[in-house]
């Protein structure tokens, strides 16, 4: 039993990253009808920004401020800076191609990703960095289930982020504009909502979320690597599809589901077969639900 619960905790942590990162894919898809394949690398850039801010703040304030204040500061500053990266990607990579075939926009994302990876390698060099521990890790053991305060923090922070995003999209004017845009991006601009405002906003939020995920990721898996965003990006993309393209709630749930499938497949089967079995399961799910869990049929959308 504790074996099972231990894996539930493991899966919740791992799924949190998929969930938060896949939301970024889903949001951009909702608004622009294309997948931002640079998102995994935006996550990587966000993690590095977080690393830089964390190192800086720890050097300056670690004697004065309590750790959780520093942690919050790191999260907020990183989020702001990473949002700018998102806006930049939209401005440089996607805006010039707005009328272009979607395949062109897709490869733009891939290229921006490669530029980020190699740019990072050139600027920071080949060595790996270790993300500083912002919160002293304390291990707890309750009934044979081990978890750390960092794990709890990751899971709780991810849930808070997703709840905040949900409120933003459902309750605010900006959120309404985004929803409207995803409904019809030809008519909505005629109502005075510019795509050139909503698109960067979407990218900014996606990048901000990814960067917070990056800071949390740095706490759990502290080895930074310019290529760290690729595998996570792909899998989060899978989660976005599985959740239903454009559905934020779906992406989050599918992210957790993906985490659970990966962890539990390795629990039951030999770990060598983990990805093989895990992604076969997802293939089967998609065969029966080709639009994912919450995806709408295309015919119900006006613009396709």
């Amino acid at each position: 039993m504790e074996y099972f619960l231990q894996n539930v905790v493991n899966a919740l942590q791992w799924g949190s990253f998929y969930a938060v990162v896949s939301i970024g894919y889903s949001m951009v898809y909702g608004v622009l009808m294309l997948f931002n394949f640079a998102h995994g690398d935006i996550f990587m850039v966000g993690t590095y920004i977080g690393f830089g801010i964390a190192t800086l703040l720890l050097a300056m304030f670690s004697a004065i401020l309590p750790p959780w204040v520093i942690f919050l500061l790191v999260v907020v500053i990183t989020m702001c800076l990473a949002s700018l990266v998102g806006v930049f990607v939209e401005y440089v990579g996607y805006r010039p191609l707005r009328g272009a075939p979607r395949a062109s926009a897709a490869i733009t994302g891939l290229m921006i990703g490669i530029i980020f990876e190699t740019g990072n390698l050139i600027i920071l060099g080949a060595q790996r960095f270790s993300f500083p521990a912002l919160i002293e890790s304390v291990s707890y053991n309750i009934g044979g289930v081990y978890f750390t305060n960092v794990k709890v923090l990751i899971i709780v922070a991810s849930l808070i982020l997703m709840a905040a995003l949900h409120t933003f999209i459902q309750k605010t004017k900006w959120g309404m504009a985004m929803r409207a845009m995803s409904y019809d991006f030809l008519a909505v601009p005629l109502m005075g909502v510019s795509i050139n405002v909503i698109a960067p906003l979407t990218f900014a939020i996606g990048a901000g979320l990814a960067s917070v995920a990056g800071v949390l990721y740095g706490q759990a898996y502290p080895v930074l690597d310019p290529y760290m965003g690729i595998a996570l990006g792909w899998k989060a993309f899978v989660a976005a599809i599985l959740g239903g393209r454009g559905s934020i709630m779906g992406a989050a749930l599918a992210g957790y589901l993906l985490g659970f499938i990966e962890i539990f497949v390795a629990m039951v089967f030999p770990s060598t077969f983990r990805d093989l079995i895990a992604y076969s399961i997802i293939l089967v799910i998609l065969t029966f639900r080709p639009r994912g869990f919450f995806g709408m049929a295309h015919s119900t959308r006006l613009r396709l």
């Binding site: 074996y3 894996n7 493991n10 760290m228 539990f264 983990r274």
Partner: peptide, 19 residues
Amino acid sequence: ESFTTKDTDFSSQLTKIIR
């Protein structure tokens, strides 16, 4: 237990090993 290059989460394998 095994994993593949680029994996960063080994919690499932390690839980199995501990058990």
